[in-house]
């Protein structure tokens, strides 16, 4: 019943730096069906946000460029689309909610204006129509007295409210795909829950596919149908959300999940020891091209890991891992 919406094949992105061109994204491939929620997980600097920006053609120019691969949105390759065509896609077919609600809205325009402007960019509508649509959107994202709020400026709203406005902007053109890049990271925990709840409601209501980028494992487990784990610009594991939580195969995925602090560890309520993955994400500049990029931090490392790079291999239906010595038993 669900149709293929997005198909990313072998996507590679390079950045021009003082040390020459470096690859920030390599061989990233994934599929997304309409109405599906895909979580992209990984530490900072692993290429999650760059993947998202590539989808809407906003890789920082002039230094970054798509060096390889295809981004097929309903069959159309966005990797080679013209700037004009990408502009039509942005905000209309694919829209995006960013991490920082405090700074992502323009301080000198009313929120109503910023919502209705998006509509005007894509449809031939009168300003009265777009304004009333903006108010409907504010109501939809749960902002009280939307008629009044529409005339207010971002600084008059709280962080949670602003993120709701960002979501309203992102959804006003009824996009096929919504990319949410760490949408709740900057918010209070209680507000986070509200925003996630809102995402879920709106997703059920509109059927929009969502790519949820986060480093919060809990959020992924809660929201996503499928999960893609990235490390050093590469996909290291993909699978269903269930596989991700209960049957992680890649030592990195395993590590990420072990790092989530447990509130309750044992009956005496001693705090559980905090776990970490030793080491840091390698700088892409220093990354050696031989071997698995995760090997220096990996507890399962074998000789082969240093000499050859593993590629993504299907180990079960809809579950693929890039590892020479994957976890045998999950827990």
């Amino acid at each position: 019943m669900s149709t293929r919406l997005l198909s990313v094949r072998d996507l590679g992105i390079t950045f021009l730096t003082d040390d020459g061109e470096i690859e920030v994204l390599r061989d990233v491939s994934f599929e997304l069906n309409s109405g599906e929620v895909l979580g992209i997980v990984g530490e900072s600097g692993c290429g999650k946000s760059m993947t998202a920006l590539a989808l809407i053609g906003l890789i920082p120019k002039p230094f970054g460029r798509i060096s390889n691969g295809r981004i097929l949105l309903e069959g159309e390759d966005l990797a080679v689309a013209s700037e004009k065509r990408l502009r039509q896609v942005r905000g209309n077919d694919i829209s995006m909610v960013f991490q920082e609600p405090m700074t992502s809205l323009n301080p000198v325009f009313t929120v109503g204006h910023q919502i209705s402007e998006t509509l005007r960019a894509h449809f031939d509508m009168s300003s009265r129509e777009t304004w009333s649509r903006a108010i409907e959107m504010l109501k939809l994202v749960g902002i009280p007295s939307p008629e009044k709020r529409a005339n207010e400026y971002p600084h008059q709203l709280s962080g949670g409210m602003r993120q709701r406005v960002m979501i309203a902007i992102a959804l006003v053109c009824e996009p096929k795909l919504l990319i949410a890049d760490e949408p709740t990271t900057a918010l209070d925990v209680t507000v986070q829950a509200e925003i996630l709840q809102l995402f879920r409601e709106l997703q059920e209501k509109t059927g929009t596919a969502i790519i949820l980028i986060t480093h919060d494992i809990g959020v992924v487990a809660e929201m996503a149908d499928r999960v893609m784990v990235m490390y050093a610009g590469k996909v290291v594991e993909t699978g269903t959300a269930r596989d991700f939580v209960y049957d992680p195969m890649h030592p990195y995925t395993h590590g990420l999940i072990s790092c989530v602090p447990k509130l309750v560890h044992n009956p005496s309520y001693d705090p559980a020891p905090l776990l970490e993955i030793p080491g840091v994400v390698p700088s892409l500049r220093e990354l050696k091209r031989t071997g698995c990029p995760f090997a220096p931090r990996c507890k399962n490392e074998i000789d082969k890991c240093r000499s050859a790079e593993p590629s993504l291999a299907e180990i079960a239906d809809d579950h693929a891992v890039a590892c020479w010595n994957r976890m045998e038993t999950a827990w």
């Binding site: 942005r90 829209s95 995006m96 960013f98 920082e100 323009n106 301080p107 960019a121 902007i169």
Partner: peptide, 11 residues
């Protein structure tokens, strides 16, 4: 960030 938002809107 808000200029990035403006671009992401397709303006």
């Amino acid at each position: 960030d808000y200029v990035r938002t403006a671009r992401a809107k397709g303006l």
